[in-house]
Simulated assay, not measured.
Amino acid sequence: MMRLIAVAGLAAWMAACSPSEKSDWGTGLNTVDRKYNKSASDTFDAAVSALKSYDIRVTNERHDALGGVVEGARANGDKVTVNVSSTDANHSEVAVRVDPGDVNLSTMIHEKMAEKLGMGVAKSTMTGGNTFEGYYDLDAKEAVAAAEKTAGKLGWTVVGKDVKDQTTTVDARTEDSTPVRFRMEPSNDPRGRTRVTFIAGTGKTDQGRTLLSKMHDEFDRHAGRHAH
């Protein structure tokens, strides 16, 4: 009898918990992990700067050449923890967790870190080399869907979508947080095709050229109707 009462009490307690509390019992479901093509030292500095940018009070920080931990507190008392670990001299991994569970803020902190590291959004360079244009027999909605499918197939994370007038941009990040962008806009040709501009990274690099090739080839597979 006592066992039945105890089980019933536990069930009632679990039912009273909020969804965020249930998903945060040490499972890591509210932790956002990303990789960066930057050293652990640079990434750690970006983490500290990102917290301060959001007026999150840094309560503790400790680090060495292999990484470190930054702890902070929001005005409402929520705890923020950023773990930085080195994978090699030029790459690092970061886990951001906001207790009791705020995935959106964790993602925002990552985006602010990327900005501090000079990896905010993909931008065309003055000399070219990191952009490619294609013309497609798709409407804007179909082109956006193809861009999102392309990012998903390549294992990239879509971090933003913006519509201004007749131009739509889809921003994503590769496995090492390099920014990439798909920009869709009407073209002036008689066929009414959509012009898609692919942008990889923020400069002319071998990595950028490789990413452009992947973006274009995968987009073509999802678009189906492509014409230069």
Rank of each mutant, 00 (worst) to 15 (best):
M1S: 08
L10I: 15
M14G: 03
A15V: 10
A15E: 00
C17S: 03
S18Y: 10
S20H: 04
E21I: 02
G26C: 03
N30K: 00
D33I: 12
R34M: 15
K35H: 14
K35T: 14
N37W: 09
K38G: 01
S39C: 07
A40T: 06
D42P: 03
D42S: 14
T43P: 12
F44V: 08
D45H: 08
D45M: 11
A46Q: 12
A46W: 12
A47I: 12
A47M: 09
I56G: 03
R57N: 07
V58H: 00
V58D: 01
N60H: 10
E61N: 06
R62Q: 06
D64L: 01
G68Q: 04
R74D: 04
A75E: 12
V82C: 01
S86V: 09
S86T: 11
A89W: 06
N90A: 07
N90L: 08
N90C: 02
A95I: 05
P100L: 03
L105K: 08
S106L: 00
S106W: 08
H110L: 03
E111S: 11
E111T: 15
A114P: 04
A114F: 05
A114M: 03
K116V: 08
K116M: 08
A122P: 02
M126Y: 14
G128E: 07
G128V: 01
G129H: 05
N130M: 02
Y135T: 04
Y135I: 03
Y136V: 06
E142A: 11
E142R: 04
A145Y: 09
A146C: 09
A147M: 09
L154R: 07
L154P: 07
T157R: 13
T157F: 04
V159T: 15
D162Y: 12
D165C: 00
D165F: 05
V170K: 12
V170G: 04
R173S: 01
R173F: 07
D176V: 15
S177W: 15
P179L: 07
R183H: 02
M184L: 11
P186I: 05
D189S: 02
G192R: 01
T197R: 13
F198L: 07
I199H: 02
A200F: 11
A200V: 10
T202H: 11
K204R: 14
G208V: 06
R209C: 00
R209D: 08
R209F: 00
T210H: 10
T210S: 10
T210E: 11
L211M: 12
L212A: 01
L212H: 05
L212R: 11
M215A: 00
H216C: 00
H216M: 03
G224V: 07
H226G: 00
